[in-house]
Each structure stands twice: as C-alpha cells, then as structure tokens.
C-alpha cells in the first residue's frame, strides 16, 4: 500500500477518464437528451477503435483515421435508428441488435483477428511527424492536454448545435414526442439524427482510446454503456452539488467528462487496494444501480404506502 504508487497512477487515470468521458458524452445525448437507452455503443466503441487502427496501419494519418472512425460510428447509429423508426423495433432491442452485429463487423474490419496493434515506434506521435498518434499512454501529460482540448471542442459543438432550431427539435422529441409532432417535427428523423450523433462521438472516443493503448480489441467496448451511465450519474451528482439545478447545457456536459475522470480515479484506487480486477464490473454495476435508484427511493421515502400505514397507525393521519 504505497500511497506514492497510487499518486503515480493518477495521471494515467485522468487521461483515460477524459477519453472515456467523451464516450459518456455520446451516451448522454441518447440517455438524457433523447430519453433512449442506446446499447449499440458497446459495439460502436470497438468499431471506432478498429477503424482507427486499421487505417493507421494502412498508412492514413491518425487524425484522418479518427474522422473516418466517426463516420463509421454515425453509420452504426443510423442502423440502430432505422431499426427503431422504420421497422418498429423497440429502441433498446435495436441497440442490442446493432451491438450484436457489430461484433462480427468489427472482426471483419480487423481482418478476422480479435486484436490489432499499431506500434507507436513505427507511426510516432502527431507532434513528431504531423500524422502520428494524437494520444498515447507513453505521453500522458500530452494525452491529458489533447483529450481535454478535444473534449472542449466536442462540448462547444454540441452546445451550439443543441441551441439551434434543429438541435432543439431533437431535445423536444426527447422531452415530449407528442408536442414535437404537433409542432411539425418529424420525430422519427430526430431520433435517427440523435442516435447517429451519439454513436459518432462514441466512435471518436473508441478511436482515441485505441491510440492511447496502441491496440484495438474487439472486446474493448464491452460494458461501455454502463461506464457511460456511471460517468453521467457521477457527473450529475457533482453538478447538482456545485450548481444546484441551475447549470446550463455546456456545464452539464463538462461534468459528464469530469464524471468519467472520477470514475477512472475511483477504479484506480480500487485496483490499488488490491481488489481483484475481475470484480470491477460487479462493483461498477452496483454503483450505477445505487445512483439510478436514489431519485426513486428519495421520492418513495416522501410518499409511500408503508409510510402512510405508519402515519395512520400512529394516529397522525387523523388531523
């Protein structure tokens, strides 16, 4: 139990947290803005990584590989959206189907291998040759800086977009579909659009994470949705503490990234405490379940049949 050892792991945790936080931003758009739990992200995250690594190996500059990875993510989101809106499959099942199919697709992208490595030695960093990796675990301070800069850009673009007529139409669709429809908004198109944007961001995050590790893995996205939800919830808890309910959209998105960082810091501490890494997922699931349950339980505590019965039994309900 060397505390210095824990400290030395923190920068890496922060870098990974920011990159995963970007993924959580994508989840935020579906889960909070569109009010859909989109499970395709587990597959899309790996797709982003697979496309990025294969294109780098094929000689593309890493930044261009990332942009194409975003397009691949958008295509995946489009599939989920069309399954849902054109074929009438419930959103959650559409996501599961896309995720399931993407496993095979990702293997095909990676030449039927479960993982593919692009060596840092061969391709270098972007600040060395202009076309190398944007982030790497070998250059952690730079990775934090680049991750932070990209997060700022994405947040800025999303903030602007959701303030436009079109972005607001997506928000209205998530908030009240009947109202959106009555106001002339094509809610099906808005859902497809939202899912595409979300998955594009998730693929961007997957591509960055893969560069950070130097390896694309077909299983890297497993449980991404849960990590995304954990980041969102942790971020929201802190956002409410600092801003009450008065935070604007940009601040709330910033806290989602912050939630991703906190999640990775927490995971690092848990590993440092010598807990079995195999238990991490169980641990994460329990945390997410607790935080998702808190608003409901709070409400229940205020008004429940059990409480009503108690009040009646004590005679307090009489007056």
């Amino acid at each position: 139990m060397n505390f210095l050892n824990l400290l030395s792991r923190m920068p890496s945790a922060c870098a990974q947290g920011i990159l995963w936080g970007l993924m959580a931003l994508g989840v935020y758009i579906t889960f909070r803005v569109l009010d859909i739990a989109d499970l395709s992200v587990d597959g899309t995250f790996a797709t982003g990584g697979a496309v990025t690594v294969m294109l780098i190996i094929a000689g593309f500059p890493a930044w261009l590989a990332l942009l194409i990875a975003i397009l691949a993510g958008i295509a995946a989101g489009l599939c989920t959206g069309l399954l849902h809106t054109k074929l009438g499959i419930p959103a959650i099942l559409s996501g599961i189907l896309t995720q399931f199919a993407l496993y095979s697709v990702n293997l095909h992208i990676m030449g039927m291998k479960a993982n593919q490595t692009a060596s840092l030695k061969k391709y270098g960093m972007i600040f060395e040759n202009g076309k190398g990796f944007l982030v790497s675990s070998r250059y952690i301070p730079a990775a934090i800086g680049v991750g932070f800069a990209i997060a700022c850009i994405v947040i800025f673009i999303l903030y602007r977009y959701f303030g436009t007529e079109q972005g607001s139409a997506i928000r209205a669709t998530g908030s009240n579909a009947a109202m959106a429809s009555a106001q002339g908004i094509n809610i099906n198109n808005m859902k497809v659009l939202g899912l595409s944007i979300s998955n594009g961001i998730v693929a961007l995050s997957g591509g960055l994470m893969t560069q950070f590790q130097g390896t694309a893995d077909v299983n890297i996205g497993r449980g991404a949705i849960v990590i995304g939800l954990a980041s969102i919830i942790i971020g929201e808890v802190f956002c409410d503490i600092f801003f009450r309910k008065g935070a604007n959209f940009a601040v709330r998105m910033t806290f989602v990234i912050f939630g991703g960082v906190l999640y990775y810091v927490a995971m690092t501490v848990i590993l440092w405490l010598k807990m079995d890494p195999n238990d991490l997922k169980l641990f994460t699931a329990i945390i997410v379940a607790i935080f998702l349950a808190v608003p409901y339980l709070k409400n229940q505590a205020k008004t429940s049949f059990g409480r009503a019965a108690k009040m009646a039994a004590n005679g307090k309900g009489e007056k």
């Binding site: 977009y161 303030g163 436009t164 007529e165 079109q166 972005g167 607001s168 139409a169 928000r171 209205a172 998530g174 908030s175 009240n176 109202m179 959106a180 106001q183 002339g184 908004i185």
Partner: peptide, 26 residues
C-alpha cells in the same frame, strides 16, 4: 409542451411550426 425546455425554447419550437429546422440559433 416540452417540460425539460425553457418557456422561450418551447415558444421558439412553436415559432418554427411547419418550417424546416435549420442550424440557425433558435
């Protein structure tokens, strides 16, 4: 009405009823 949106945002949605939703600030 959309409960998660501001009063002015709801009105802006209604203001564009039947028009193409562009990338202009709402």
């Amino acid at each position: 009405t959309a409960p998660d949106m501001w009063i002015e945002e709801n009105l802006a949605i209604a203001m564009r009823r039947g028009e193409k939703r562009t990338l202009k600030w709402m």
